[in-house]
Design a protein around this nucleic acid. Structure first.
Lengths: 240, 240
DNA sequence: TCAAACCAAATGTTCGTACATTTGTCAAGG
DNA sequence: CCTTGACAAATGTACGAACATTTGGTTTGA
C-alpha cells in the first residue's frame, strides 16, 4: 500500500508557517505592520503557544518577520530573494529557470594539488579530477574543475555519465550533502579559459569545499563563471 | 548601582550553547563523532530537555552540528568561516583585522536615479548621495555610492563626519538595521573608477538594498571593490 | 514641564510530560 | 543469503504552565 503522490502530512507548526507566509505575501498581513501576538495566534489556530513560536522562529530565520521582546512581531518586506542555500550548478540553474547541461572535457586520476590535499586532509593519494564545461540553455556559463576524495566508492562509469555530482552523492551513494565553505574572487580570464569560455573578459571564481552529513569532505570544486552571464544574488540578515 | 562591565547574565541555553561550542572547538567532542543524546545532556547540565534542544538548534543554525531524527547529533568540521551576516564596510574590515577609513569625495541632494527610486518606492524626491573612497589600513579597497531615503531625520553634518552609516543609524538615530538583499557582479573597471581605485583591472560590484527593523528601506548602496584586494568568503548550508 | 515610577502587553526562558517518527541493528524465517 | 519484522534509541512534535524581561505608554510627583 503505497500512495504514489506521497502527500506527507505536515506538522502543525509547518502548516501554520506556510499559512502565515501566504498571508504576508498576499498582503493580508501588510509589510511594516504587526502580526497578532502569539497568544492570539495560538487561539486562532487552536494550538499551543509553543507551536506558534516554532512557526514564528522559522519565519524569523528566513528574515520574513522581526520579533522584539516586549514589542511584537513586525512583517518584513517580502522580497523575491532568499537566503542563499547550498546548491549544485544544476540546481542553481534550474532555480533560475534554465536547463543545465555539461560537457566532459577531461577525467583522470591525478595526484591532488596542494590546496586539494589540504581540504581532503590526505597526502600522496590519487583523486578523481573532472574538467567540465557547464551550460544553461546551451549557452556556456562556466568551467568547473572538480576534485573528488579517494575514499568514496565511485566508479569511472558513474562519473562519465554524471550530470549533477550532488545528485550522484545523494541518490546513488546515499551520502547527504550538508554544508560548504566558499571563497569568491574575480579576475581576467586566463589562457585556456579564454578559449573554452569564448571570452576576453572577466570571470568570477568560486572555490568550494563541501562536507557531507557525517562531516567528511566530499568535494573540492573550482568554478570559473563568465561574469557577463552570471550574477550572484542573496539575502543577508543582521546579527543581533 | 551599575556594574560598569555589564556582564549580563546569559540564559541557560546560551550558556550551554557556548560550552558545547567550546568543547567542539577544543576537540573534546571530535569532528565526525556524535554528541551525547539530548537526555544525557539535559542530565549533565541539570536542565530540561527543551533547554538543551534550544542550545542545539542554535548550533545547528550555525552549521556546527547535524541532527538526524532516530540517529543522533553529529559534530561538523569547525571551520573558521562563518555564515555571512549583514555588516557594514567598517565592520567587515574590522572583522578581517584591518582599520577602516574613508574619504568623502562628493555629497549632494540629488534626484534619485531610477533603480534607487524603485528601491525606496518614491517618485520625484531628493535623496542624499554620498560618494566615498574606502580604505583598509590606508590602502584603497573600494568606491562606494550611497543613497539615503528622504524620510530619515538626517542632517548634512551627520553625514560629513560619519565613518559608518550603520553606526549612525543604530547609535544616533536608534534605527536598527535588519536585513538586506545583495546582488554581486564582476566587470572591468570603468572611466572614473580606474583613476580613483588606481587600477586597470577587475572590480566586484555589490548592490545592496537595506531594510530596518520596522521594514523601512534605509539605504541603497553600490560598492565597487578592487577584485585584486577583496575576496568574499562565506559558508553555505544545504536545505533539507 | 519633565523626569521618575508604574503598569500592561508582548516576547523570552524554563520546566515537565507524553507520544510520534525515524533510524539502525539484530534475529527469525524463507 | 537476503528479506522481513521487532525492538530500542534517538530526535521531532505538541501541549501547557509559570515566571522573567523588555518595551512603550501613562500616570504621578517634584
Amino acid at each position: 500500500m503505497i500512495a504514489l503522490t506521497a502527500a506527507k502530512k505536515l506538522p502543525k507548526h509547518e502548516e501554520i508557517r506556510i499559512q502565515l507566509e501566504n498571508k504576508m505575501r498576499s498582503d493580508s498581513y501588510k509589510t511594516g505592520s504587526k502580526l497578532p501576538p502569539e497568544i492570539e495566534l495560538s487561539a486562532e489556530y487552536n494550538v499551543s503557544r509553543s507551536t506558534i513560536r516554532q512557526a514564528l522562529r522559522s519565519l524569523e530565520e528566513k528574515g520574513l518577520i522581526n520579533r522584539k521582546s516586549g514589542h511584537g512581531t513586525t512583517v518584513m518586506p517580502m522580497i523575491n530573494t532568499e537566503i542563499q542555500k547550498l546548491s549544485s550548478f544544476s540546481e542553481d540553474m534550474l532555480s533560475r529557470g534554465y536547463v543545465p547541461s555539461s560537457k566532459l572535457l577531461d577525467i583522470q586520476l591525478i595526484d591532488a594539488p596542494l590546496h586539494v590535499q589540504e581540504a581532503f586532509k590526505i597526502k600522496n593519494k590519487k583523486v578523481w579530477y573532472l574538467k567540465r564545461l557547464r551550460f544553461a540553455d546551451d549557452k556556456v556559463i562556466a568551467l568547473q574543475l572538480l576534485y573528488i576524495p579517494p575514499n568514496l566508492p565511485i566508479q569511472l562509469n558513474d562519473l562519465v555519465e554524471m550530470e549533477s555530482y550532488y545528485e550522484l552523492l545523494e541518490s546513488k551513494l546515499n551520502i547527504k550533502v550538508h554544508s560548504a565553505t566558499e571563497t569568491l574572487s574575480a579576475r581576467k580570464a586566463e589562457n585556456e579559459e579564454k578559449e573554452l569560455l569564448q571570452t576576453e573578459d572577466t570571470v568570477i571564481e568560486f572555490d568550494r569545499i563541501t562536507y557531507s552529513n557525517n562531516a567528511e569532505c566530499v568535494e573540492y570544486i573550482r568554478g570559473i563563471y563568465l561574469a557577463s552571464q552570471y550574477k550572484y544574488q542573496f539575502k543577508l540578515i543582521r546579527d543581533n
